[in-house]
């Protein structure tokens, strides 16, 4: 497992609500629903809760691509869709999602503090090793990786309990230059940044800021979602994991740049 890069900003109490590490691979045509039962038999101790969800659409970064273009419900429209299966830990904080062409590990905030990226990455690697072995034993084929992505979903509220919807400038340092006449009510914005390897675009960072209401306590919050997705350098697992590492660095540095020094204090910025 790689150590945390020393130059990466770190916080005692980061506002992370969910971290998602996912890889996409060539579709395992031979994977059928009954296989999932055999897989759960292996995983039941680790993931005692299982459920089915609609499959995710294929997600590929291409250049160019049209902003806002709906994805393609390929799996849903052609043939019989294979479900996405959720395997959850007892407390729900760890979730492994599997479908024919994806494996995703989510860490979700429950009562526990954020255990940091290296921990979640370790669990993804465990899931991949177990699933890869299972696929081999069952003759389902090799995992040939074609895309990897890392997402951080942050939920931000103000320390004094005020709604942050009208105070985005207090949360995001990048927002301060947009103070206009009148009283701001709320704000939503999205941005995409492209990344190149040897002058060839290969990945994107998607940033979205939206006002939201937390169901649990009805409190106004700001959701800051950052996703880095791209094509690994080759089709190996190592390359897919390397892309996740790059994406994590990009997201953490971008988060630090976007957010205000005052909020950094609230979150206990360490370096």
């Amino acid at each position: 497992m790689p150590n945390r890069p020393l130059d990466l900003p770190d916080y005692d109490r980061p506002p992370v609500n969910e971290v998602v590490l996912g890889v996409q691979f060539g579709s395992l045509a031979a994977l059928k629903t009954p296989h999932i039962g055999f897989l759960w038999k292996r995983w039941r101790d680790r993931y005692p809760v299982v459920s089915e969800q609609p499959p995710l659409e294929p997600a590929f970064e291409t250049f160019p691509s049209v902003v806002g273009e709906p994805g393609i419900l390929f799996e849903s429209l052609i043939g019989v869709p294979f479900p996405r299966v959720w395997f959850e830990s007892e407390d729900g904080s760890d979730l492994c999602q599997i479908q024919k062409d994806r494996l995703i590990h989510n860490w979700r905030k429950r009562e526990n503090a954020y255990p940091h990226y290296e921990y979640v990455r370790g669990l993804l690697v465990d899931d991949l090793r177990n699933f890869g072995e299972f696929a081999q034993e069952e003759g389902l084929g090799e995992l040939v990786f074609n895309q990897a992505e890392v997402s951080y979903i942050n939920t931000i509220d103000l320390p004094d309990g005020r709604s942050p919807h009208a105070a985005l400038d207090e949360v995001l340092s990048t927002w301060r230059q947009f103070s206009l006449e009148g009283e701001i009510e709320d704000t939503t914005f999205r941005a995409r940044y492209r990344f190149k390897r040897d002058e060839v675009p290969y990945a994107r960072l998607h940033v979205a800021v939206t006002p939201a209401v937390r169901r649990a306590d009805g409190k106004h919050i700001i959701k800051l979602e950052m996703t880095f997705r791209g094509k690994p350098e080759n089709d190996s697992q190592d390359a897919a994991l390397a892309l996740l590492d790059v994406g994590r660095g990009v997201i953490v540095r971008s988060f630090d740049k976007m957010t205000s020094p005052e909020m950094h204090q609230v979150w206990g910025r360490k370096q």
Binding site: F60, V66, N106, K223
Partner: peptide, 28 residues
């Protein structure tokens, strides 16, 4: 771009977004 996929794979449904609250996030 497939930001819709990025939204869909998130596991939590703990938040309501006032601007989009009238559009249920149901696959169908």
């Amino acid at each position: 771009m497939s930001s819709n996929a990025a939204r869909a794979y998130r596991a939590d449904d703990d938040f309501l977004s006032p601007a989009t609250a009238n559009y249920p996030n149901h696959p169908r």
